[in-house]
Design a protein around this nucleic acid. Structure first.
Lengths: 204, 204
DNA sequence: TGACATAACAGACAAATGTCTGTTTTTTGG
DNA sequence: CCAAAAAACAGACATTTGTCTGTTATGTCA
């Protein structure tokens, strides 16, 4: 490879490695070599080791594809969580799609206490939650008044604002066209699935 | 390792591998061997290959740590994009925070044509965009009527609905309390920064 | 019980990958 | 221009990892 001014190529290598780590497969030393057209492995290795020395990359010695992003030590690591779909027999199951879909989130919660769901209906319009929005939910059996929660009412998953009134749970829509759900009153089986911690909308 | 009934161990291996892939480092055959206490590499390999055959895992032959989640072949790779902050001298610059903040997105667009921004104000309330929401924006100099765009009006970045009327550009809020902005009329310098492609809200 | 499929083991080779020593070329900065 | 630093190259060895052939043990099911 042609000679470049100090740091120039290193920066590109950093970008390349970062990209690869984020996409799920850290590169091997020779991956980097090939990607940059080095004629010697050592050229790639030198840059990589320097990046580690500078603290811009971390590394597990001796293991293949051992480069990591250091900031993930302290910062919130990205996690993939499953998109859940239909409601079946009283519980949410993975969507029908054969390849189950995942979305990437960054939270301090553990990924197995999280799931995501596509919102149907306009009952939370005034809370800024529209049909088609994806909500990311943390599984928890209880909630605090004011929380936006996902609950199973009958065999339908629904997103509502959690309230308490006279010691009873109430699920409030945020749209005048809908009525509050007062679980024990209308006899529908009720269970709290979790609390909404993030909302996403794609508008391409 | 003790003998187990058919499929039993295989299922656990699948969970193990999936976990490892999701957490960023696919395991090696011998990682699996060790994790399950097999005394032969082939034991692990046999299970892994069968999982691939069943379609539950995908694999890049010959490469180290070559196991993948099958759905990931086509999925969009995640990217980190910069959170932009204040408006300075007519253009958006990176927020003051020393460690520049990044957020992870998955889109088909290139990461250097994307940026993210925190929404201030309630002018897009009825479009489900609240103060504090993060919008992910694709830089583009033009837009189509109906798009939600980010524009620089004066020296303030603003999120509005893009409209055209009599061949003139209009920026419409979605909240009666605000008035449309008709750029060339009130003489304020105007430039279109880009189009909003995603909205995110954290509600922890 | 016996035939068959599956699970697990043994040992080895080959390819990929990490690592090393030393040299040459180019850039940088005074 | 010169010395020092950085970049790139060359070639090799060691370890890790993928892969293979064949064998033994255990579970399944009629």
């Amino acid at each position: 490879m042609a000679y470049t001014s100090p740091g120039k190529t290193r920066e590109k290598i950093y970008d390349f490695v970062r990209e690869r780590i984020l996409s799920g497969t850290p590169p091997t030393t020779r991956d980097v070599q090939r990607a940059f057209g080095f004629r010697a492995v050592q050229s790639a290795r030198q840059h990589l080791e320097k990046l580690v020395f500078e603290g811009k990359l971390a590394k597990v010695d001796g293991r293949s594809r051992g480069y990591r992003l250091p900031e993930f030590g302290k910062a919130v690591p990205p996690q993939l969580i499953a998109m859940l779909g239909r409601v079946q027999a009283g519980e949410l199951t993975e969507a029908m799609e054969d390849p189950p879909e995942y979305i990437m989130v960054q939270t301090r919660f553990d990924d197995d206490e999280l799931f995501a769901l596509t919102v149907e209906g306009e009952s939370m319009l005034h809370a800024g939650i529209l049909p088609g929005d994806v909500v990311i939910v943390r599984r928890q059996p209880t909630a605090s008044p004011g929380d936006i929660v996902v609950a199973l009412v009958g065999d339908e998953a629904t997103v509502k604002r959690y309230r308490e009134r006279d010691g009873r749970v109430e699920l409030h829509p945020e749209n005048e066209a809908f009525d509050p759900i007062i679980p024990r009153e209308d006899g529908a089986p009720f269970s709290l699935l979790g609390k909404v911690i993030e909302i996403r909308r794609s508008v391409e």
